[in-house]
Amino acid sequence: MTEAARTEPLLRVRGLEGWYGESHVLHGIDFDVHEGEVVTLLGRNGAGKTSTLLGIMGILPRRAGSVTFEGVETIGMQPRQIARQGIAICPEERGIFSSLSVEENLMLPPRIKDGGLSVERIYDLFPNLRERRRSQGTKLSGGEQQMLAIARILRTGSRLLLLDEPTEGLAPVIVQQIGHTIGALKSEGFTIVLVEQNFRFAASVADRHHVVEQGRVIDVIPNAELDANMDKLHGYLGV
């Protein structure tokens, strides 16, 4: 048992269920994330990984169960109230606003708490964004847009970041860069829940992996025990 595991988890998800209209997509998700950890949600397409992030954020149209953050129950809250607790999302589609410049996109999410990164520090992490800060947000390359989507939630003081497939569709060199960034964020003390299809990428950055299937977490594998569980994992992911 690590020291972190003995303390109260930062995020505690219990029996989280979620629906899109009539379609029941989450069937009781359970997992914990401790302060400073990077954990992944792995699974096939449609397993419920993105829906879990949207469920934590309160964006799912209907949800039930329990999601506590810093000990506060958020299941009855609106997304904006959940954001105000200190949770921030980087959505799969990135959500860069085309009517805003790069700098306006970066400055958009309001500061929730103290302790966010300064704009200077963010530009040091992502030098491309500094160069292109006057450009229209959607004129950036895919990789730059992804960096912008991550960069803008670092300013807010949120300590828990939900990153939905940040490497999707990006060139290997950019994926590597994002991997370095996540490492840097971990050492800054950010807590990260990462949804990934890119298993090798996930293995390079995370402390623990949760396997999601049919709207449930069916297995938890610490990164250290990954090699021993490779066959099992291949079975889960169908790769």
């Binding site: 904006r80 999302i89 606003f97 958009l108 929730i112 807010t156």
Partner: peptide, 19 residues
Amino acid sequence: AYLRAATENPVLVGAFGIN
């Protein structure tokens, strides 16, 4: 900027904590 962003994607703007 809030207004323009909310015009494009009100759900995401709400998820950033804006009313």
